[in-house]
Design a protein around this nucleic acid. Structure first.
Lengths: 249, 249
DNA sequence: TCCATCAATTCCGATATCCGGAACAGCTCC
DNA sequence: GGAGCTGTTCCGGATATCGGAATTGATGGA
């Protein structure tokens, strides 16, 4: 089933930022010949994974993918059980809280609107690179080296891990050392690795001993001095444990 | 690209109700030989569209589909513009309000938690059969016969349209007659066609003359006598027009 | 209005890929 | 410990997929 790899590569071109792409753009990003891309696009359009606005316009992801995502969403009881503890954590820490879900292969963050706003709608569902976020590293730190490597292999890579800023750990050996530290102390720190100026403390959420997600607090580096990290980490870990307990029942 | 059809059929086996399926179940539902299904599953697992709990356990849809759904969600500004008018409609009518989005190929309903609850989270994202819901028929009624047929062809079919209750319109000719009526008066009525005992009044939402979704009020048939339908329809159509105006700007 | 330019689409023969029946392996439950 | 079922591997034949090259169609400037 080699062709599905290409199909997957085509779909991967679409991101939150690039939601409308032309055949040529997709060909350039995937490195595939235009003809192959054209065939892929036609097939994806046929099954409703892509739609074209006009007759010759750019492509968008189709709503059928939204529906499939909805099926997945229905499967996540982590979100239900995490709600109350997450809000408590947000109040305790005074910082933004992120929750991630993990299915053994993908780390996806589900963000809600800021707590201040009246509504609490899900506004962002987004894949996260695991090697440079508090939640991602928290999850990685609980995995075997083989499992962790499989996750990292999914990243777009030209040898090193993708860089997002000066602090991003792009070397696998260095990352592995960092993960050992995380594993030992029970929490992960993202020190401006994903977004310069933003720090983050994350801990894994387990059900029956298995990681199913992670939770973190995030904020400007100025509000996250080294001395405060252990304090925040305690809260985060306690919250993660609470959610885990909720899940077991 | 014939194989993608099969891939699509495999993914279609997973629904909100059947979220965990074994190879044998999928083979039975799709009618494909076990070997072919096995190859599909292996490939889908490889690209992260499916995950397996244990080494030989049932399959679930992978979180990567959730992430792709998130990209689609980011593309829908209908939801942002619809929020306020939808709430007004809920208060005016005292009934549950549904909003659907449409990309030319799929009708997907995005449901929120009941208004009474403090939170307003998205709790359900689900594909809707277009031929038996207020929103679906509202959308169909705006399309050309050819476009409408394409939508109906996507439904699992053994000749007639899928039946959900005694009132479901399963005959295409009868449906077309009903749609003509809907088109003329500007709104669609679901008379216990999807769920016995539940009635529904829906109207299309247009942007620049093109349908992009629909909105409806839904409730027990006892509260939706024939005499009340035009009253509700007025509210629904006014709301749809308001949302359409919001979108144009 | 015409032409130049670029993007999207169609064509086609070679070949790698997918197909699915049959045999095999590995659980699980008597 | 064995029977029965489900999932997995193997393999030769058919065919769908591959991508270069030519064609068609849109776009914008002179």
């Amino acid at each position: 089933m080699k062709s599905l790899r290409k199909t997957s590569a085509v779909l991967d071109c679409f991101t939150r930022e690039d939601r409308r792409l032309t055949l040529a753009e997709i060909a350039a990003r995937t490195g595939l010949p235009k003809t192959s891309v054209h065939r892929q696009l036609a097939a994806l359009r046929e099954i409703g994974f892509l739609v074209q606005d006009g007759r010759r316009d750019a492509y968008r992801l189709g709503f059928r993918l939204l529906a499939l995502g909805g099926v997945v969403l229905a499967d996540i009881d982590l979100m239900r059980h995490a709600r109350a503890p997450a809000e408590t954590l947000a109040n305790q820490s005074g910082e933004a809280v992120h929750i991630c879900v993990f299915d053994g292969r993908n780390v996806v963050s589900i963000e809600r609107r800021e707590m201040e706003a009246a509504s609490n709608e899900i506004v962002r569902i987004e894949r996260e690179p695991p090697h440079c976020t508090g939640t991602g590293k928290a999850i990685l730190s609980t995995l075997s080296d083989a499992d962790a490597d499989r996750l990292l292999d999914d990243l777009p890579s030209d040898g090193a891990l993708p860089r997002f800023g000066p602090n991003t750990i792009t070397d696998r050996v260095r990352l592995r050392r960092d993960l050992t530290v995380c594993r030992a102390r029970g929490y992960a720190v993202d020190d401006e690795e994903r977004n310069p100026g933003v720090r983050c403390v994350g801990a894994p959420i387990r059900r029956h001993g298995q990681v199913v997600g992670a939770i973190s607090v995030t904020g400007p580096a100025a509000r996250f001095p080294d001395a405060r990290l252990p304090v925040l980490a305690e809260m985060v870990m306690a919250t993660a444990a609470k959610i885990g307990l909720n899940l077991e029942r």
